[in-house]
Nucleic acid binder design. Structure first.
Lengths: 218, 218
DNA sequence: GCCCCCATGTTAGCGCTCTTTACATGAGCT
DNA sequence: AGCTCATGTAAAGAGCGCTAACATGGGGGC
């Protein structure tokens, strides 16, 4: 039959053995190549070397596979952010810039995950696991914001939640608008990472954190 | 035939007369209801009361219709931003906040346009008109940034392009993450508009614009 | 050690969309 | 009045999502 690999790399019998994982890998590849909509249940099955109906033994439908990819994405995302923050060492400002770079690096290096998480239109409550994973990722961001805010004297501290949302929005905005590998939409005078770094510095400056005066040109 | 309206509202003969416009309207409705992917060429044709092949007389394919919608969106967007900016009256800071609110209002009130423009994956060079319209919209944003920067003393002026990109990124980030009508993804302690307004104020503060000087100034 | 269960895979098929090709209609110019 | 060509329709092929009925064989219960 035409859907079968001519020479399966790992010859198998009737049962695949690890189809669910392989479907996720295939989905990641397809989403990365052709966007979250170019991804097709049937084509993922083809890549995995099984019939078009086989995926339905592991996922209720296409959306459930997408939600699974998004969940794994949020888990990896949270790990990357937590690793970058590294408990605020050596100091919160430095760690925070590292966090920003990690955000963009994730969006850039794992476009398939990032698409599934933020651009595929997967509803957050597609599964409890998805919501929990997304929550944990945001919590990592928020914790960093709290550590930075603790640098300010009491009475000049903005709400940590708001600050986290601002940073998230700017990061996501830069990633979505300018962070793509192909630079499809607009040529920039600077890299996305530099843009975010500068924006974060200015924002923190506005809060009274870091530097020794307002930003100026060089 | 089943695709035909049982009782066309505006009875017509063999020729529709204004199909292109009606297809665009149908597309807007569908995108608004079901997202940029829920939109279907065939269904737009059904809404317009014509056969599934008729749209191909007006658009090469589904993507060209989407690109046309995006182009119209950018034109409307630029008009909304320019109107909000109102040449910086009564003063640039006030006008700038109005601009931000207009950005979010557009994303909120015209989700179909906004989706087609930024979330449907339409490549900017799908048509020269699209690119030109997008360019003009960004130019409006950049002009406002320039007017604001002019408030700063020379030597403390950041590049206007960078500032425009920052504001755009934050606006788009907030719109994409929190600006949806259904609030699908995350409950906020404040409205998207308030969030953007606060973020913009903090950012401008960091540049030394507005309020009574940077927060670090005492 | 055998057998049967059922998780996992396949085949076949329905209904849908996208797109192309060949044909039909009629509005407007001459 | 007659022609032309833009604009519509019908028909058809390919691909996809999903379901139902059937096939296979790995592993647990005996």
């Amino acid at each position: 039959m035409s859907w079968k690999r001519d020479r399966p790399e790992h010859p198998r019998g009737y049962h695949h053995g690890n189809l669910k994982e392989e479907l996720v890998r295939a989905a990641l590849g397809l989403i990365g190549e052709k966007g979250p909509n170019g991804f097709t249940f049937a084509e993922a099955a083809r890549l995995a070397g099984v019939s078009p109906a086989a995926p339905y033994r592991h996922f209720r439908d296409r959306d459930e596979l997408l939600a699974d990819v998004a969940t794994r994405g949020f888990l990896a995302f949270e790990a990357a952010l937590t690793r970058a923050w590294d408990q605020g060492r050596p100091d919160p400002e430095t760690a925070f810039q590292r966090l920003g770079r990690a955000y963009l690096a994730f969006a850039h290096d794992e476009p398939a995950y990032y698409s599934a998480m933020f651009e595929a239109g997967v509803p957050l409550d597609a599964s409890p696991e998805l919501r929990a994973a997304a929550e944990r990722a945001f919590a990592a961001l928020r914790q960093s914001a709290e550590a930075l805010i603790a640098l300010l004297p009491q009475g000049k501290r903005p709400p940590a939640l708001m600050m986290a949302l601002h940073i998230w929005a700017m990061s996501h905005g830069i990633a979505a608008l300018f962070g793509r590998a192909d630079g499809g939409r607009r040529p920039l005078p600077m890299s996305a990472a530099e843009l975010l770094e500068a924006g974060t510095l200015i924002y923190l400056q506005g809060l009274g954190i870091g530097g020794d005066g307002p930003a100026s040109d060089d």
